[in-house]
Amino acid sequence: MKNFMGNILFLDRSDINTDEIIPAKYLTENFKEALRPHLLEDLKIAGFDSGRDVKDKAAVVSRANFGCGSSREHAPWALEVNGITIVIAESFARIFRQNMFNCGMLAVGLPAADIEDIFKTFSPAPARLSVDFAADRLTVQGAGREKSYAYNIAAFDKSLVEAGGWVEYADKNY
């Protein structure tokens, strides 16, 4: 199972699409590693600079409908090769969410109030996230504060993460 712990990248906008996560022109790459320098390079959020802000992050916290648009699994891969294995958002587009779990990564939906609380309490200062996978809880620490949030993910999605992804799960079961 992957490790779900580290620094948070705050992306304070709804409807971040997979073209913004990794532009289509990089879909011609045949190796995931080639995506690394291009994560979020076309994302326009005031104050955000992908070249500076993506470094040393392990988690993304964002708003509603994260990962909408193209089905490209290059989006989770671009996160993964940059060390980001968990995205926390108010809601996800279906294909992106499934792609995350299929890769053994975590896409955690939290109520809008919890997301707002995380942004208000911790962003934009440096903050760290840790996940108690067995207890379905995540903890955010930053600026001398610490807060814990319970989350819900489907039992099936949890078993994909434990198996290391859908290929591994399907191989065992079908």
Binding site: S71, R72, E73, P76, I95, Q98, N99, N102, C103, A154, F156, G165, W166, V167, A170, Y174
Partner: peptide, 20 residues
């Protein structure tokens, strides 16, 4: 349904896909 590469890979290999 549109899917990602991992769903596609399992579809190619086993002819199945998981959905809610």
């Amino acid at each position: 349904a549109g899917v990602g590469t991992t769903d596609l890979e399992v579809g190619i290999l086993k002819g199945v896909c998981a959905f809610r």
